[in-house]
Amino acid sequence: MDTSDIQKLTDWLIDGARSAASSTHMFGETCERIVAAGLPLWRVGLFIRTLHPEIYGRNFIWKPGAEVEMGTVDFQILNSPDFQNSPLIAVFQQGIEVRARVDDPASSRFPIVAELRAEGVTDYIALPLLFIDGSIHASSWTTKQPGGFTDAQLAALRRIVTPLTRISEIVTLTRTASSLLDTYVGNRAGERILGGQIRRGHTETMNAAIWLSDLRGFTSLSDRLPAETVVDILNLYFDCQVAAIRKHGGEVLKYMGDGLLAVFPIDEYVGDDQKVCSHVLEAAHESRVSVAEMQYSIGDVVERFRFGLALHVGPILFGNIGGGSRLDFTCIGPAVNLAARLEKIASRLHRTVVASEGFASICRGGWSDLGEFPIAGFSKAERVYGLIEETSAD
């Protein structure tokens, strides 16, 4: 094993692995450099826990001559027998090394050893990655070398793991920030914030289809049900819309109690307003079906739900608004205000989906003219359209 190559590798990692274009390339190049230094690796894994509402962690798997595979695992893995009986459980829980030499009878307590033996692996070691914040992550290293890893090779791996941990932490923090921003403010807003658009007043104008909805009867629902139940219902209700909105190119900007504000950006240079509005209408149809099918059992009573949705299209101001150091990345403008007024009209007319004349004129067909209505705060009445197949509900 060439110790000078190991030193060059650690120096490269400490310097930020600048020649690697991504985290997967960095991990792949690290493993390849270790092999080039004379340490015969077979299968190597990185397991990084993450701060995400649905994803427990990400794994990166390297094998000689193959691209690095990246995957995610959800929180169910914590209760799976494979994980509970894995050497990694001790790494995550105690932050200790775990070695399993295939020829050591004591290693048979790990079911994975039988799989490794079938592959021709002779040695396995799991090493903790200790982040500065105290969180514990893990790496696993295997070899087919007769007799397993030597003491010198294990020392080299431990030496490499230290800078590998630091650069993995930096990548993870960046990914976590991006993930949290996507979760709480949306993809486009998250990209802008990470890109430096963080000062109050940083805004831009864009044309967009606007989606504004709320849950019918929410006030009485909140009054007669426990708060925990109401939260559970709201989460199910929002699930009925968010999947369709994202599927068709929209972005949820804000939840306001039972209200949901989403936008579908329109590229004015491409002129794709008709295509975008058609996608919005498809999302509206899918959401309407999902909400209609939604049920919630409370004792012997099965609750059913209805919602109202207003669709409009127009220019919005999109960016940072707020006071002092507490900002919100949202959209404002007369078009948003009009959508909010239209949603109230939908409620008065007992309609599920209504649209402004601007939206209906772009996305033609399937609309019935519901008449003109005065709009609070606007100088002239607005003609409102409803889905032609939908009659007013009592």
Rank of each mutant, 00 (worst) to 15 (best):
D2L: 00
W12T: 03
L13E: 08
I14F: 08
A17S: 11
A20C: 14
A21T: 12
S22W: 09
H25T: 10
I34C: 01
V35I: 00
P40A: 09
L41D: 02
L41E: 01
R43I: 10
V44A: 05
E54V: 07
I61E: 07
P64W: 01
G65N: 11
G65H: 05
E67L: 10
E67W: 02
T72S: 13
I77C: 10
S80F: 15
L88R: 01
Q93A: 15
E97N: 12
R101Y: 10
P111K: 09
G120P: 00
V121H: 01
Y124T: 02
L127M: 10
P128D: 09
H137T: 06
W141E: 04
T142E: 14
T142K: 05
P146Q: 12
G147T: 13
F149M: 10
F149A: 04
I160E: 11
I167S: 00
E169M: 13
T176R: 13
L180Q: 14
D182R: 14
G186C: 03
A189Q: 02
A189Y: 00
A189H: 00
A208W: 02
S220A: 15
E228M: 13
L234D: 06
L236F: 14
F238H: 03
D239K: 08
Q241A: 10
V242D: 09
G250K: 00
G250D: 01
G259M: 07
A283K: 05
V291E: 02
M294V: 07
E303K: 10
R304I: 09
F305W: 12
R306E: 11
L309S: 11
V313C: 15
P315Q: 14
I316G: 00
F318A: 05
G324Q: 11
T330K: 09
P334W: 05
N337D: 14
A340Q: 08
E343Q: 10
E343V: 03
I362A: 07
L370G: 05
L370Y: 05
G377Y: 13
I388M: 07
E390I: 10
T391S: 15
